[in-house]
């Protein structure tokens, strides 16, 4: 039996200019809840769900490339998804980002997004 690898497609999420410096915006793509983050001009896309108690990460503060969960304060490295601190050791998913015509875009497959972390 062979699995057919679904075709990859680039999904444009939103204009980079819509995300203020050290801010973030939640985006839905089908069933996926993604969070577009601007960390000092570097764009990251992660799943918009904390690995601690599943709360949305939208609105969390970004400092030094880390996003802190607004609910209990777990901090995640936006490049790797790895958490700091004692509440959880489970990373959040991260997605490789491309900037295309000013849009923040991630590569998704029909079966869902292809994660790089977590």
């Amino acid at each position: 039996m062979t699995d057919r690898i679904p075709a990859a497609r680039l999904e444009r999420l939103l204009l980079a200019a819509e995300v203020p410096n050290n801010g973030n915006r939640a985006v839905r793509v089908g069933e996926l809840c993604l969070l577009v983050c601007n960390a000092d001009g570097q764009f990251h896309v992660v799943e918009n769900r904390c690995s601690h108690q599943k709360s949305p990460l939208e609105g969390g503060r970004i400092r030094r490339g880390h996003l802190s969960c607004p609910l209990h304060g777990v901090r995640f490295n936006l490049s790797t998804g790895e958490p700091l601190g004692a509440l959880t050791r489970v990373p959040i998913r991260t997605y490789p980002v491309q900037i295309i015509d000013g849009f923040v875009a991630v590569e998704l497959r029909d079966s869902g997004a292809r994660p790089t972390g977590g």
Partner: peptide, 8 residues
């Protein structure tokens, strides 16, 4: 709070 810094 368990994180070392943040905003809430």
């Amino acid at each position: 709070m368990a994180g070392d810094e943040g905003s809430a």
